[in-house]
């Protein structure tokens, strides 16, 4: 579903964020990316959805080569879940979910906030599936952090992407809410046969919810294994002093 071929990314200052990374992510799998901060986790995701352009190597998503010219096409296939939710605070929850359909609904009508009825029905369904049916008409800035992230997940589902990239989706939530949100996210992705790639800094959550763990360190892949095979020594080598 996603294929990275020897991807490197060097920033203008000479710092190497990604160094010859080759990975594939299959549909219906859940992968956690772990690593100390500054290891290149965010850059990896940003390269996949075209926010950054790799300095070497290539990426294909669902058979489409990622390039600046195909940005909107790629973004339609790639759903994003952000640490700070990135919703529109002043719009209600349902409208925020409906923005997930913007790339395929008629342009002119969408500028007047009119949506096809079946998109609205689908949005309501997704909102119910993340457990927020009764909050549909609330402005999202009145919702709690966990609820906001669930709205963002529903938006992502309505987008019907082949791939979901989640950048620290639970970093600003408390432990209990984090588990809830991760559960919803993982269930949604596997049910819809999407490839889910999650950046995380909590090892316990990664081990609990993800099938596969990729460890990044200084921009290089140092671990790539199933979660059940992972030993604490291996993890230590990821975070420990070099």
């Amino acid at each position: 579903m996603i294929e990275l071929r020897s991807v490197s990314k060097e920033f203008p200052g000479g710092r190497k964020a990604l160094d010859d990374v080759s990975l594939t992510f299959a549909a219906g799998t859940v992968t956690a990316i772990l690593g100390p901060s500054g290891a290149g986790k965010s850059t990896l995701l940003r390269c996949i959805n075209g926010l950054e352009t790799p300095t070497a190597g290539g990426i294909t998503v669902n058979g489409i080569e990622v390039s600046p010219r195909k940005l909107r096409e790629i973004r339609r296939e790639v759903g994003m879940v952000f640490q700070h939710f990135n919703l529109v605070p002043r719009l209600n929850a349902l409208t925020n979910v409906l923005t997930g359909s913007l790339s395929r609904v008629p342009m002119l009508l969408s500028l007047f906030y009119a949506f096809p009825r079946d998109e609205i029905r689908r949005a309501e369904h997704h909102l119910a599936s993340v457990g927020l049916a009764e909050h549909a008409w609330q402005r999202v800035d009145r919702l709690s952090g966990g609820q906001q992230q669930r709205v963002a997940i529903a938006r992502c589902l309505l987008q019907q992407p082949k791939v979901i990239l989640a950048d620290e989706p639970v970093a600003s939530l408390d432990p209990e809410t984090s588990r809830e949100v991760m559960q919803i996210l993982v269930r949604a992705a596997t049910e819809n046969q999407m490839a889910l790639v999650v950046n995380l800094h909590q090892v316990d959550i990664a081990l609990e919810f993800c099938d596969r763990i990729v460890g990044l360190r200084h921009g290089q892949v140092v671990i790539d294994d199933l979660a059940e095979n992972l030993t604490s020594e291996k993890l230590q080598s990821l975070y420990g002093q070099s």
Partner: peptide, 27 residues
């Protein structure tokens, strides 16, 4: 910028970004 980024990430057109992220925020 996060508000705009959320809209861009779903593949919204520039005008849609304005109508859904820009105008409601500055209403």
């Amino acid at each position: 910028p996060q508000t705009y980024q959320g809209l861009e990430s779903v593949g919204a057109h520039r005008w849609q970004t304005l109508v859904y992220a820009g105008f409601p925020s500055i209403q």
